[in-house]
Design a protein around this nucleic acid. Structure first.
Lengths: 213, 213
DNA sequence: CCACACACGTGAACC
DNA sequence: TGGTTCACGTGTGTG
């Protein structure tokens, strides 16, 4: 190790004051000094870089379920897993358009947009119809019967109409297309139950109101 | 530098037939062989280790909003931020007890349980009272007026009673204690508006029904 | 002794 | 040019 720094930087020859110390290289003393200083600089900069990286790694160790003795590689592997996991959990929990419209609507779409498909199937179901007090209980019953887990629910009411947007997760063992159709049909029957008791004469109660601004 | 590759891999001295090539070292030829093989092994193992770490770093690069040319250190800094952010987002989006009780209740608690206090203030507000159709719009109006962002809303109705559990976030510039009291008072007035029109004679409509099983 | 993981100093490459 | 980042081979410590 020592010979590295020796032969690379500290070699100096043709020193005017100590000509015998220098033998085979043709650098001037000033060139020597400069090279030496550069090497020292380089060494210190590299050390700072290592410290910066390691400090971030230590920080990550405190954020994950692992002690301070876990490998760098294992730690990074855990980090990768955790980021993927958290990303999937939160990717669908974002802004949705929840303002009720004047026309009844049912939409059920697959929302598994991220690449890592190792999680559950995620759907976004939207139901827009006249408001009624039993709507939510009925909706809950439907989700329960279909074994769907609600990750997020947004509800907005405006002028007697309501829009409910649900992000739901189905277990992996279920078929994606089937689950979508079941949910669509169930919501359709729910909407049919509501029709006939419309009350369009209600005045709008205010401006845009949404659960998640 | 050269002597590294020289003595490590490509050179093969310690030839039994040229013992004089080794002069000042006291190792026997077999010892030399073993040392050389060990060094080669070591070199290769270290390379594998580097590749393992870098492969995880590359994987992380694909998971974050950054190109493939970002620094290791900057990348790790981004990862730290992202994990903290996602952790906070999802730490509060977990199971909550949402079954309505027979007694009216209002609770507002600070839910900023994670150490990193650089995020928004997070509260969990729970309101349990008789169900009425205007409850949700009124609740939305309150959150809007207090500039609170709803991260999660759970609602359950059971036998004409309802429990709403909200996880809300307040901007950093607001005072934590003040926001809690404002929210508590607003919910109290909301509950007062409901009282007087109770309808306890309603039969329970079913068993436990909750939005998020 | 060997397998493993880490820090170090250095040359190369890129602005 | 100098400043910064990377890969490399090596020394060292721990199990």
């Amino acid at each position: 190790m020592m010979q590295q720094s020796f032969c690379s930087s500290s070699d100096n020859n043709n020193n005017y004051y100590h000509p015998f110390e220098v033998s085979e290289i043709t650098d001037t003393p000033s060139q020597q000094d400069r090279a030496l200083a550069a090497l020292k600089n380089h060494k210190e900069a590299e050390k700072r870089r290592r410290e910066r990286i390691n400090s971030h790694l230590d920080h990550l160790r405190t954020l994950l379920p692992c002690n301070s003795k876990t490998d760098k590689a294992s730690l990074l592997a855990k980090v990768v897993e955790r980021v993927k996991e958290l990303k999937q959990q939160t990717s669908q929990i974002t802004q949705l358009e929840t303002v009720p419209s004047e026309t009844d609507e049912i939409t059920v779409i697959s929302a598994g947009s991220d690449i890592s498909g190792e999680g559950r199937l995620i759907f976004e179901a939207s139901l827009c119809c006249e408001d009624r007090s039993d709507l939510i209980p009925d909706l809950i019953e439907i989700l329960k019967s279909l074994h769907l887990k609600t990750l997020k629910a947004e509800m907005a009411t405006l002028g007697g109409r309501t829009r409910n947007v649900l992000v739901v997760a189905a277990e992996k063992e279920h078929n994606s297309i089937e689950s979508i159709h079941f949910l669509q049909n169930s919501l359709r029957s729910l909407l049919d139950r509501s029709s006939g008791c419309n009350d369009r004469s209600k005045r709008r109660r205010g401006l845009d109101r949404r659960m998640m601004p």
